[in-house]
Amino acid sequence: MTETAPLRPLPLPDDETRFFWDGTREHRFLMQFCADCKRFYHHPRPVCPGCLSSDMAPEELSGRGTVYTYTIAEQAFHPFFANRLPYTLIVVDLEEQPGLRFVSELVECSPDDVRVGMPVEVVWEHVTDEITLPLFKPAAVQA
């Protein structure tokens, strides 16, 4: 007898967020972009918080940014994460726009090495045929 391993909590795409998860499945990091005031925003929502326009469309981002802040999870609040401790949660400042942020996990980096301001880039975590998560890793050194 083997016990069923706890599953990762999965996002439940809705009409406003489906484009995001459709994008990650194709390894594209998309956010809503307002055609009127030319700004990205996240989370997805029905109107632009800058100008209340509903004339927006998903645009692809580079998936690069820097760490605004982080925390090392030392306690699991969901059974799936219990045997993954410690893991590093980050808030990423995305490079396209000041203050455009995304919450994710930093992988391929020891918790001792994470720093505020460190460059990171997206890496794709295939979870199911429907859901791929955008995680982040330290950015490759650029010339």
């Binding site: 599953l7 990762r8 909590p9 999965l10 996002p11 439940l12 795409p13 809705d14 967020t17 996240h42 989370h43 999870a73 699991a76 609040f77 969901h78 059974p79 799936f80 994460f81 993954r84 893991y87 949660l89 995304f102 919450v103 994710s104 996990e105 979870v127 859901i131 998560l133 995680l135």
Partner: peptide
């Protein structure tokens, strides 16, 4: 404890263990 799936704004937090 969070559920098996995360709806609304929670879908951008709980799948990451956040």
């Amino acid at each position: 404890t969070p559920g098996a799936s995360a709806a609304g704004g929670r879908q951008f937090l709980e799948p990451f263990g956040a």
